[in-house]
Structure formats: structure tokens, C-alpha cells
Amino acid sequence: MNRYAVFTGSCLSLPAIEYLHKANLLACVVLPDGEPNSDLLQLQQWLKHQQIAVLGYSNKDDQQLIASLDGLQAQKGMVYLFRHKIRKDLIQYFNQELVNIHPSHLPDYRGPQPLYWQIRNGETTTALTIHKVAEELDSGDIGYRVDIDIHPFETIKCLHQKVAQTLPYLVSNFIQLDKEHKLAWHKQPSGGNKLAPAIEHVDLFIDWFKHSTHEIVNMARAGNADMTCAVFRFSQSTFQLIQASKVDCTLSGIKPGTIIELDKSVGLIIKTSDGAVKLDIIGTQQGCFDGYRFAMLFALDPGMELESGAGNDFRY
């Protein structure tokens, strides 16, 4: 029986691992190299508890890993949420039987942060796409795909969870079709203009002149309370924008970033380049507040301007 080695570093892969384990299709789990984070530590604990064989990926070379995989008779491989790029030797070992699960409609959103960028760009659907691992990242032939709706309120964590819950369905169908030789592998279409690069710190700053209302709302939603939370600056301090909503605004002659309304019921409203946005929830070092309470505590008043970018002025 062909058994799988699952390459992952996140507990979000557990539904797939659990499915393979129960179906007696799991040979081992290969964990990433480097400093473990809390997610990885939790995964290690769970695997140990389940007495699942664990192998370590080495940044240096693949020979020892290949020998161990061979010893465990892992002839097929499945990659999901794994931080390393798979090297040629390992790809060759699996002989076309190493697949990656990528959460997007490939070829769009190739890269390490597909779900974040899909929410940020306001996509309404995503997909779990199984493709062959090739030397070029996220570019191999596609064998199977499941579409998933993105709810307009979903954050990165919601979507990761939802995608994780779809994994057993995806994996079971894929294995069944593979068994029946019904997988129609096909090349990825050309194009793929939308990318999902690693998130740089500068990507998280709201530029009131550059970003539209829709983009600001989605920036906040994509990051939410995560490490990738959208941030804005006021009076040389930085605050997290955890949730924002679009607000209609017909006012003219007001700079983007200007506070246009503060009201207990309506909240804290900021002018944007194409309308206005309500800052629903704001994260500070002192805690999380709704816009109204944040403004009252931090002395923000309509007429004041939130900052865009670095904006240091050395003259005064």
C-alpha cells in the first residue's frame, strides 16, 4: 500500500494527517527545520501522543531524510503549510508522487501567504488546489481542486480554519480518484498576475492617500488580531486596526486620513480617498477598544489627521 509522508509545520494540517492516519495511509510527518513556534510545538505534542512517526527536514541536505522516508516506505508525499522549498533530490525521490496543497486558484496567488492576500484583495472565493511539486514554487501540474467561498467577514484565522476543515474532503477525494486513475493532471494556465509574497512590515501600514476604503477594510480583515494586523499611525504612535467598515460619505474638500466624525452610536469615521471608513475595533498596548472609546481615551477629535507612511518632518 502506498503511504504518505506529510510535510507540514502547522496544526492546521491536522485534519489531513488525522484522515490519512485513520485510513492507514500515513507513513510519517516531516517537520520543518529551525526554531519551533508555538504552533509547531503543539503539532509535535499531538504527533507524539498519537505515536506517529516524525522526521526532521534539514536545511543542509536531503540524503538522510530520503533514507528515513525509504525506511518508512513513504512513497507518496503531501506538502501543506511547510516553510521550506522542496529541493530537487527529494522531488526525484517521490517520482511525480509528491503533491502540494496550495490554497488558491493557481496560478493566482503563488507564494507563501495566499490566504492573506486573497482576503486583502477582496476575493470572494478561494480554492484548495493539489498540484505536483516542481522545482519552481507553486507551478506544477494541477490534479484536483475544491472551491471554497470566502465570507465577507472572514479573517485570516477564520479562513485558515475553514480551509483546514475542507482538507479531509479534499484528500479523500484526491486519493480515491488517484486510486481509480481518474485524476486529470493538467498544466497550470498561463497568467497568474496576482501574487502572494511574504508580508513585509511596511505592507501593514495604512496609507490613507493610496488605499481605497475597500482596501483598508480588507487590510484590517486579513490581518485582524494576527501578526499581520493592519496598522495606522497617529501622533507618532502606532495602533492596530482590527476591524473596519465602509461608510458612505459625500463630503468634499477633506484630506484622506482626516477624522470626520466621532459619535457614540456612529463611531469613529475617517475620510478615505474614495469615501469614508469606520474604525470598528482598534488594538493598543492598553487593550482593544471600539473607535469611540479609543478616540475619547487617546484624545482624537474630528478635524485631526491620521498619518500616512513615515512622514517625519525635521524643520520644527
Binding site: L251, I260, E261, L262, S265, I269, M296, P302, G303
Partner: peptide, 13 residues
């Protein structure tokens, strides 16, 4: 609500 409401109208703050 009536104590703290502040806003920019079409003609100013």
C-alpha cells in the same frame, strides 16, 4: 451621545 458628537459638516468642523 449629545455630549460628545463631533463631526465635519459640508461647511466645516
Amino acid at each position: 451621545e449629545v455630549l460628545t458628537r463631533q463631526y465635519i459638516s459640508a461647511t466645516g468642523l
